[in-house]
Structure formats: structure tokens, C-alpha cells
Amino acid sequence: MEKFAGAEEWVPPRGGLPKLEAALRDCRGCDLWEHAEQVVPGDGTAKARMMLVGEQPGDVEDVEGRVFVGPAGRLLDKALDAAGIDRDQLYVTNAVKHFRFERRGKRRIHKTPAAGHIVACSPWLTRELRIVKPELVVVLGAVAARALLGTGFKVTERRGEAVELPDGTAAMATVHPSAVVRSEEYRRDFALFVADLRAAAALLP
């Protein structure tokens, strides 16, 4: 595993989400900042009962500087609406805050963050969790699962299952919405994703 300095020295130990977002812009905890357009902070209310954690920004998010606004974000919005969940009441973020990609001609193709990137960026996610204090965390995809639930957790085997983060926070894992976007069985997989979101909402007391 490639090791980086990590984000710890850039993460403010006190203050709320605005202070955290301002500090994010200066982070040099790994090498992803060198090629990304900008850092992409989380978005939503600090009073959210439910937090959604994805993988990393995509191409559109990197350009716009906002989380989940590309194709996967549009699908997530559609699924949340179908599940009866108001996105304005959530806090949505990613395990890794910069876009990792490889160039193919003029296109930037998504590249999965390395284990070193996930570890380096984890202090930001830890701080977000401490500020928001969600009652439930919905883990979207394998990278987020690795960051929050460890390397041994398999989303494919345990999606939709009520689990806990190491600190005891209630959680549930499901696929990343980008997997549904790419699916050859879109209608089936969209319905399964919506069902997972409904099950997650039902875990809230």
C-alpha cells in the first residue's frame, strides 16, 4: 500500500462544517490534489439524522465542486425520491475528497482510489461524523465500506443488512449509485437500490 502523509494536520479539531469545508481546500494529505480541479466537500445539514457516504467525486463533481451532481448523483436523487427520503434532510459526502482518474484522449476516466488514498483522507470523514453525529450512516459501495467498515466487509454479501460502525453508529451498506447507472439490468437494480434506501430509512428510530 502506498503511504501518504495523511490529512490529519489539515483537519480542524474544532468548529462546524463551514470551517471544515474551508480547511479542505488546503489539504495535501495525498497526491490526488495535484491533478484534480478542486476538492469536493460534503453537502447537507449538520443536523442530519442520516449520512450517505460514497466513494469519491466524479468528473462532473470535480468540475463543479459539488458532491453527487453527476450521473450517479442524478440517479441517487431519483432513488431517494422514490424511497420517500428528502435529500435536503441528509448529509452526503465521499470517503475520498478528490477525483482520481486517468486520461484517455480528452476524457478523464474514473479510477478507483487506492488504499493509501482512503487511509490518507479518513481524518476528514471522521471529523464529518463527529460534527454531524448521524443516527444512521448509509455506506454506498466498496470504497466507502472499506473506509468505514474495514477491508473484510463485502457489500455484495451484506447489502441491506443492519450493521454498526466501529464507534457503534448504526449503518447499512448498499451499492454505489454509479453501479446502477452502468447496470445492464437497470430496472431491477434501481428497484433493489430503492428498496435498500427504504430499509435504511426504516432503521431510524
Rank of each mutant, 00 (worst) to 15 (best):
M1Q: 05
E9S: 13
W10G: 01
V11N: 05
P12W: 02
P13Q: 08
R14D: 13
G15C: 03
G15P: 09
G16F: 02
P18G: 01
K19S: 12
L20C: 14
L24A: 04
R25Y: 11
D26Y: 15
G29I: 04
C30G: 02
L32R: 06
A36E: 04
Q38P: 10
V39A: 14
V39L: 09
V40W: 00
V40M: 10
D43N: 07
A46I: 07
A46K: 05
M51P: 06
G58I: 02
E64T: 09
G65Q: 04
R66G: 00
P71H: 02
A72N: 14
G73C: 09
L75T: 00
L76V: 10
K78S: 12
L80E: 14
D81H: 13
D81I: 01
A82K: 04
A83H: 02
G84P: 11
R87H: 14
D88W: 04
D88F: 10
Q89P: 13
Y91N: 03
Y91W: 15
A95W: 00
V96W: 00
E102K: 02
R103E: 15
R103P: 08
R104L: 13
G105S: 12
K106C: 08
R107Q: 14
R108S: 11
H110K: 06
T112G: 00
T112M: 01
P113C: 04
A115H: 13
H117A: 05
V119E: 11
R130C: 07
R130F: 05
R130Q: 15
P134I: 02
L136C: 10
V139E: 08
G141R: 00
A142V: 12
A142G: 12
V143M: 03
A144D: 15
A145G: 15
A145S: 12
G152Q: 11
F153D: 01
K154F: 12
K154Q: 12
V155Q: 07
E157P: 11
E157M: 09
A162R: 10
V163L: 01
L165N: 07
D167V: 08
D167C: 14
G168F: 03
A171L: 07
T174G: 15
H176K: 01
A179N: 04
V180E: 01
V180R: 03
V181C: 11
R182M: 06
R182G: 15
S183H: 08
E184Q: 05
Y186C: 09
R187L: 06
A191D: 13
L192V: 15
F193N: 02
V194Y: 00
A195T: 09
D196R: 09
L203V: 15
L204K: 05
